[in-house]
Nucleic acid binder design. Structure first.
Lengths: 218, 218, 218, 218
DNA sequence: TATGAATGAGGGTTCATTCAT
DNA sequence: CATGAATGAACCCTCATTCAT
C-alpha cells in the first residue's frame, strides 16, 4: 500500500506524460487509433483515468504529439547520418536522406503504419507556418498536426542554401518528393506491393533526381 | 406476371440500396466516416434501421461499395473522354487521363476528400488480382477494398498493349503514377498547398512523362 | 425458376411443419434455445419467414411440440422393448424401462440435453390432466407443456393394474422415480459427474426398488 | 486518514454491488431471467447503466453471484440450526438439514423458483473442486456456477467424518440426496403437485435414509 | 398457402468525461 | 497533482412480427 503510493509519487509529471505517450504509441500501432480507447491507454500506462486529462485534451491530441515527435525523430536521425558523410552534391544528399528514412521505416513497420497516413504535406506546412497553433482534432480525417519543435523544413532550407546551385519553387519540389516517397513506400514496405522496397528504390531515386533536375535554375 | 412482380421488388431493392449509398456518401463527405453513424444514415435515407442490415454488413461495408463505385466512375469517365479524342501517343493518353481525373476531382472536392485516402494501390491491386474476394473491413485502417466490377486496370493494360512501344514493369510504372498524382492532388486541390492545382499540373505531367520514359524499353 | 416453384409446391403442408420441427430440434440441441432465432430455423429449413407463423405461434410453441414428441417417443420405445420381454414383476419392469431410457439418452446426449430441464413432472401431469390445453409459453421458465397424444401415464397405469400387487399413492411413487432418475442422469451422462452412468445405475436401480417397496400395500 | 477514505469508498462500492444484486434478484424471481434486461435492473436499482458493468460482466454473471450467495446462505442457515440441536446420528442430522432447507424454501418460494433449476450438482462440484475458476457463462444452458466462498461440501465432509460410521462413495451419496430432494421439492412446494410438501416429506425422508443405508460400510 | 422485404423497438455494450475525494 | 467510481448518451445490431404481393 505504502509501496504503491511511493511508486506513484516517484513518477513525476514528465514521466507520466511520457508513459502515456509511449503506451499510446504502442497501442495505436498495434490496435489502431480507432480501436484504442483512453481507458486502454491509462490502464496500460498505470495511471488513473483523470490523469490523462491533465496532459492531453483527447485521443487525437496525444496522437498529434506522437506524430510530430516521431516524424521529427525520423528526419533528424537521417540528417545526423548525413552529417557523418561528406556527400557534396544536393541530389545525393536528398537521396541519402530518403534512403535513410526508408531504411528506418523498413526496420520499424509499425512506425510506418502509424505515420504513413499523416506524414504528408500537412505536417511540414504546419510546422513551417504555424508551429504553435492548436486545432480541434477530434476527427480522423484531420491531417493538420501540431509539432512543437519541428524543424525539418529548416534543415531542408539549409541544405538548399548551402548548395551552390539554384532551384525554383523549392517548396513544390520538396512537396513532390515527400508525397511520392511517402505514398509509395507504404504498400511497398508493408505489403511488398507492387514490389518490395529494394526493387522500388532505384525507380524512386531516379524520380527524385528528375524532380530536382526539373526545378534547377540553370 | 410473376416475372413482373419479381422485377418490381428487385427494382425496389435496388432503389433502397442506392438511397442508402447516396445518403451515406453525402454524410461521409460532409461529416466524415467516423462521425457518421448508421442511425444518421437510415434516418436521412428515410428507412428503418434494420433495413440497413439487409444490404450492408456495417458502416465500412457501405464505404467500400462507395469507393469502388466512385473510383470506377471516375476512371471510366476519363477513359470515355479519351475515346472521343484521337490522341495517338501513350504518354499523351496517360497525361490526358490524369488531367481529366484531376479536373473531375477539382469540380467535386467532396469526392476527392472521400476517396483520396483510399484511392491508392490497394484499390487497383485488389481489383486486379482478386475482384471477388470478400474481406473483413471492420476497421478504419484497412485499405484493401472490394470492387465488384472495377476494370480500370484492364483499361490500362489495353492502352499499354495498343501502343507500339514496350514498357518494362508496367505495374510499378502505374503504381508510381497513381501514388504521385493521388497524394499530391489532395492538398493541392483542397487547400492550394503548396500551390494550386493549375500551378502543380505542369510539374505533375512532367514527372508522369519521366516515369514513362524511365520504364520504356528501347 | 420453374424448378424452384415445383420443388416448393411439392413440399406439402405436413412436410413443411416437419421440416421446421426437425430443423428446430437440430438447432436447439446444437446452439441452445436462447441462441436460436426463428430466422435461423426458417433459413436452415428452407422456408420463408412468414411460413413459420402459419404453423407455430413462436419459438416456445415449437419447443413444446418437440419436447412432447421426443419424450413420448422415448417412453414408447422403452415400452415396446419391454413388450418383447417376458419380465413378470413390476419392479423389474420399471427398472427395465428406466434402464432402457437411460440407454437411449446415453446414445443421444443432445436429446438428453434438450429434454433434461423439461422432462419433469410437469410433462406427465400436463399430459395426464389436460392434454389439449394451450398456454402462453413465451418464457424460458415455463415447464408446462402441450403434449398432443402423450400417453405414458396410461402405460404406467396399465403396468400397475396388470400387476397383482397393490401400491398406495402410485402418482407420488412415479413422481419420485421420474424426478430422481431424470435429475441424476443429466450430470452423470453428460459430464460423468460425480460418476459415469454405469457406475450410477446400480445405485439408481436400488433406490427405484426402494421407492416401490415403500409404496407397496402389504 | 487515507485509510478512512479508502474504507468509505470501498463500502460505497460494496453497497452499489449489493443494491444491484438485490434488485436483480427481485426482478429475476418476479419476471424471470430472460425477461429481465440490464436496463430494468439499473433503472430499478437507481444507478447508471455503465455502473452495472463496473461490477458484473453481464446478466449471467450477476445471476451466478446470486445463486452462489443464496445457496450458501440456505445451507449455512440449516447448518447453524443443526448446531443448536444435539442430534447425534448422521441420518438424523442429514434429514434435519433437508427438512430445514425445505422449510426455508417453503417460506420463500421465489428463492426456490430462482435456485431450483440451478441448485444442482454443478454448484457443489464447482465449489468443491474449483471454487476460484471463472467461466464464460454467457448462455442460459450453463449449469456450472461460480461460488466464491461456497463451503457446504466442507460442512458435509465434516458431518461424515464426525460420525463414527463409515460410508462408501460419499460423493455419490450426497449427489443422489441433493438431486432427489431438489428436483422433487420444486413442483411439490410451488404447485402442490403431485402432493404438497408436507405429504411428500415422509416419502422423501424415507428415501434419504435408504440412500444413506445403502452406502454404509458395515 | 406462401413469401420475404421491411420494420423499429429494444437489447447489450462502450467510453469520453466529470468531480468528489 | 492525482485518483477512479460514476455517469449516461450514443452506439451497433438483432429479431420477432407484419403485410402486400
Amino acid at each position: 500500500m505504502a509501496n504503491v503510493t511511493l511508486k506513484k509519487s516517484a513518477i513525476n509529471k514528465r514521466q507520466k506524460k511520457e508513459a502515456l505517450m509511449n503506451t499510446a504509441f504502442e497501442l495505436f500501432t498495434s490496435k489502431g487509433i480507432n480501436k484504442t480507447s483512453i481507458s486502454d491507454i491509462v490502464e496500460k500506462a498505470g495511471v488513473a483515468k483523470g490523469t490523462f486529462y491533465l496532459y492531453f485534451k483527447d485521443k487525437y491530441d496525444i496522437r498529434n504529439y506522437l506524430i510530430s515527435s516521431k516524424a521529427e525523430q525520423l528526419f533528424l536521425t537521417a540528417h545526423k547520418a548525413l552529417d557523418t558523410t561528406k556527400i557534396p552534391e544536393i541530389e545525393d544528399q536528398i537521396v541519402f536522406i530518403v534512403d535513410n528514412c526508408l531504411n528506418q521505416l523498413t526496420e520499424n513497420p509499425s512506425l510506418l503504419n502509424f505515420i504513413s497516413k499523416n506524414l504528408s504535406w500537412g505536417v511540414f506546412k504546419k510546422a513551417l507556418v504555424d508551429p504553435e497553433s492548436e486545432s480541434d482534432m477530434n476527427t480522423m480525417d484531420m491531417d493538420e498536426l501540431d509539432s512543437e519543435n519541428f524543424s525539418f523544413y529548416k534543415i531542408y532550407q539549409y541544405l538548399i542554401n548551402s548548395s551552390d546551385r539554384q532551384f525554383k519553387d523549392p517548396e513544390i519540389m520538396l512537396f513532390m518528393i515527400i508525397e511520392l516517397v511517402s505514398s509509395t513506400c507504404y504498400s511497398s514496405i508493408l505489403y511488398s506491393e507492387p514490389c518490395n522496397i529494394d526493387e522500388l528504390k532505384p525507380h524512386l531515386f531516379k524520380q527524385v533526381r528528375h524532380i530536382l533536375e526539373d526545378h534547377e535554375e540553370v
